[in-house]
Simulated scan of single mutants.
Amino acid sequence: MTFDPLAQQPKLLYLLQGLGAFAAVVALLLVLLHRGPVRRRGAAFLLLAPALLLLTAGLLVPGLRTVLLSFKDGAGEQWVGLDNYVWLVTDPGALTVLRNTLTWVVLVPLLVTATGLLYAAAVVRSRYRALALALVLLPMALSFVGAGLIWKFVYAYRPAEADQIGLLNQLVVAFGGEPRQWLVESPWNVLFLVVAMVWAQTGFAAVLLAGAIRAVPDDVVEAARLDGASPRQVFWRVTVPLIRPTLLVVALAEVIGTFKAFDIVRTMTGGQFDTGVIAHEMYAQSFRYGQTGRGAALAVLLFALVTPVVAYKVRAQRGAR
């Protein structure tokens, strides 16, 4: 494949036009702010105007269009009213997707927060704390696609007479069992996908919670010990209540991320074998099956579920400061 400079000229022209438009807007703002009689509120509006314009074009307009599409048919032409939302709560496949999403939203934040808390408590006073936290944080250096591929190999299946390449089936065979198709058997396959998500996200929780534990005042811990509290009682009755705001922020962040889970499902099962979740099913309905109305309805549902959690997380972060 050869490089053709002439074919790249339109792209280069578009890039230069975009940079020129950006420079022109910045220059206009500077002129208005420094030479015109602009009050403080006017200056704030001028500085926010480009960002507000981009947010309107990139978020508000597409969001409103998605809401309108959710009331139309698969081709996005005929109005069908609430049919797409009725499909969401009556179709067996859609109900399975909702059930799987609920399973993810309950298990992933709970397991990530609990595992991260226990790991942080175990290493926070250690001499090798930095190394231990770096090791648990390593999976976050991977994308969710990379994490999904790794765990897909862990669960890989081959017939009993063949050599197993999957770690889990290799262990099963080593102890005299029969290899199983872990990602095919429903509903347990959903739990195996959850494990991959927990592995990828535990480092995030551990690092934040380790910092919160270290911020607990030493005099409070010493006072509890002088009162006769055991190390376990100090941890559960003193440390955990004091880091509760951080625990809440971590759990809410995981809830938001879990609602948007897509990559792991797409990489490991492609949503097959009853493993679909809302974010993946939204993609599948819109682009694989050509049902843009149903995909839009799923997008609206996802937005409705995530918005209150985001609002509560913002309040929790303010309270944690």
Score class of each variant (00 low, 15 high):
residue 177 G to M: 09
residue 179 P to I: 09
residue 180 R to V: 14
residue 182 W to I: 09
residue 182 W to Q: 02
residue 183 L to V: 01
residue 183 L to D: 02
residue 184 V to C: 11
residue 184 V to E: 14
residue 185 E to R: 14
residue 185 E to W: 10
residue 186 S to A: 15
residue 190 V to M: 07
residue 191 L to F: 15
residue 193 L to P: 08
residue 194 V to S: 06
residue 197 M to G: 14
residue 198 V to A: 04
residue 198 V to F: 04
residue 198 V to Q: 00
residue 198 V to Y: 03
residue 203 G to V: 05
residue 203 G to I: 07
residue 204 F to M: 07
residue 206 A to K: 02
residue 206 A to G: 13
residue 207 V to R: 10
residue 208 L to M: 11
residue 210 A to E: 09
residue 212 A to N: 03
residue 213 I to P: 03
residue 214 R to V: 00
residue 214 R to N: 10
residue 217 P to W: 03
residue 220 V to K: 04
residue 221 V to K: 13
residue 223 A to M: 02
residue 224 A to F: 02
residue 224 A to G: 08
residue 224 A to M: 06
residue 225 R to S: 08
residue 225 R to H: 07
residue 225 R to D: 04
residue 226 L to S: 15
residue 229 A to M: 10
residue 230 S to G: 02
residue 230 S to K: 10
residue 231 P to H: 01
residue 231 P to R: 02
residue 231 P to T: 02
residue 233 Q to N: 02
residue 236 W to P: 06
residue 238 V to M: 12
residue 239 T to W: 01
residue 239 T to M: 09
residue 239 T to S: 08
residue 240 V to I: 09
residue 240 V to R: 03
residue 241 P to W: 05
residue 241 P to E: 06
residue 242 L to H: 12
residue 243 I to Y: 06
residue 244 R to F: 11
residue 245 P to K: 05
residue 246 T to E: 09
residue 251 A to K: 03
residue 251 A to P: 11
residue 254 E to A: 15
residue 257 G to S: 14
residue 260 K to G: 00
residue 260 K to A: 13
residue 262 F to G: 05
residue 262 F to V: 01
residue 263 D to A: 09
residue 264 I to N: 11
residue 265 V to P: 08
residue 266 R to S: 15
residue 267 T to E: 12
residue 268 M to A: 08
residue 269 T to P: 04
residue 269 T to D: 05
residue 269 T to F: 05
residue 269 T to E: 06
residue 271 G to F: 04
residue 271 G to H: 02
residue 272 Q to N: 15
residue 272 Q to G: 07
residue 272 Q to T: 11
residue 274 D to I: 00
residue 276 G to E: 13
residue 280 H to I: 09
residue 283 Y to I: 04
residue 284 A to W: 11
residue 285 Q to E: 03
residue 286 S to R: 05
residue 287 F to E: 06
residue 289 Y to C: 07
residue 290 G to N: 03
residue 290 G to I: 04
residue 294 R to H: 12
residue 295 G to P: 04
residue 298 L to Y: 11
residue 298 L to T: 04
residue 299 A to N: 03
residue 302 L to T: 04
residue 309 V to E: 08
residue 311 A to N: 01
residue 311 A to F: 13
residue 312 Y to T: 14
residue 313 K to E: 13
residue 314 V to D: 13
